[in-house]
Design a protein around this nucleic acid. Structure first.
Length: 355
DNA sequence: AACAGTAGCAACCGCCGGACC
DNA sequence: CGGTCCGGCGGTTGCTACTGT
């Protein structure tokens, strides 16, 4: 029992649109509008097209003031910043770029910008990244989007501090074990993000703030498990899972405004990354060499803690995706926020009682 | 010149959520 | 309140043009 098809598939034309079809659709919509019903539209015009197809054609191609190709550097920056912040939510990204469609941006990202930023990984390196079965680090369970965003963050981080030391921890560090390089990088990225006062990522702030982490760093309290670097990053720093759609996030500026209805609101991507993104886009910076990422992820091989963290993270990540078709599930976010905030409160209160 | 591989892009597909009855 | 319809979205596919051998 599947859903009934939106149109009679057998009596509908597919494939590229002819100029006559374009003209018919354009003329009609310009004169009469869509009539609020795309499904009925093609019949009215006499087009043998699916209503969805008409809608797509209009929105992506025929609509006035549509720009095609020729993305400016500024647009590149916006796309990159927003992708890092919110992931592949092309409609929201498109809302920030007048004249651009989500499809256009999606294609542009997939075919050009991603390669420009991440470099091209040979299949061998991709295999290396996902690991052979004997080396199940959990990395392979990450979605491509997550990995891409990790990569971008790491690149930005390395630009931020190319001489970042792997082993310069304070011996009194809170961390239960020495962090591996990748974790340190991620923590640094987290700090970078948090310090950026990025409204998009920091409003409705998520559980493990730098302040809270600092509290643990300066106290003798053990770090709660969910504050492990990786989980903290996942909950908090990377922008993954930290955009609560149902709350008063900047992504939903008006209460009752649905995802689809989100207007061209003022998103604030990681502007603080602007210089770094500029560098990446212009290939001046630490654009990854072939296999660089694979090498970075290789460090997980001898880091059990990192494996656990990554596995936890990836599991959470995929679970969220599976449960809600959205990695920034508000429910999961709220759950983490509640849990960790409560723990934090408890610990702070406990600390005060001791004093 | 012919072929294979790759890139770019338009269009399609299936799913989800909101609106409406 | 539940079912249905429709719009919107992100992921994917397939076609065409381009490039390399």
């Amino acid at each position: 029992m599947g859903r009934a098809p939106c149109c009679d598939k057998t009596n509908v034309k597919k494939g590229p649109w002819s100029s006559e079809e374009d003209a018919k659709l354009k003329d009609y919509i310009e004169k009469y509008g869509t009539g609020g019903n795309w499904i009925a539209l093609p019949q009215k015009i006499g087009l043998k097209r699916c209503g969805k197809s008409c809608r797509l054609r209009w929105l992506n191609y025929l609509r006035p003031n549509i720009k095609h190709g020729g993305f400016s550097e500024e647009e590149d920056n916006i796309i990159c910043s927003l992708y890092i912040s919110i992931g592949s939510r092309w409609s929201i990204i498109a809302a920030q770029l007048p004249g651009r469609t989500d499809n256009d941006i999606k294609n542009y990202w997939n075919t050009r910008l991603k390669k420009k930023l991440l470099g091209r990984r040979k299949q061998s390196q991709a295999n290396k990244l996902s690991g052979d079965p004997k080396d199940s680090s959990g990395v392979e369970t990450l979605s491509n989007s997550a990995i891409e965003r990790l990569q971008l963050h790491m690149q930005l981080q390395s630009l931020e501090n190319p001489n970042f030391s792997h082993y310069d921890h304070n011996p009194n560090s809170m961390w239960p074990c020495k962090l591996n390089p990748i974790q340190e990088k991620m923590m640094h990225s987290l700090q970078l993000v948090n310090e950026s006062s990025n409204a998009l990522m920091m409003q409705n702030f998520s559980p493990a703030t730098p302040q809270k982490l600092e509290y643990y760093a300066q106290s003798n309290n053990p770090l709660p498990q969910e504050y492990s670097p990786m989980s903290n990053m996942m909950i908090n720093g990377m922008g993954i899972n930290n955009i609560p759609e149902s709350s008063s996030s900047v992504l939903v500026p008006e209460s009752g405004c649905t995802k689809q209805q989100v207007p061209s609101m003022e998103l604030q991507p990681c502007w603080e990354f602007q210089a770094e993104i500029d560098e990446l886009l212009s290939n001046k910076g630490a654009a990854p060499l072939e296999g660089q990422m694979g090498d970075q992820f290789d460090c997980f091989k001898d880091m059990n803690g990192a494996k656990e963290s990554m596995t936890w993270w990836s599991n959470e990540f995929e679970a969220n995706s599976a449960s809600s078709n959205s990695w920034d599930s508000a429910a999961v976010f709220d759950h983490h926020k509640l849990q960790t905030d409560m723990k934090f409160q408890e610990l702070v209160q406990g600390q005060h009682r001791v004093q």
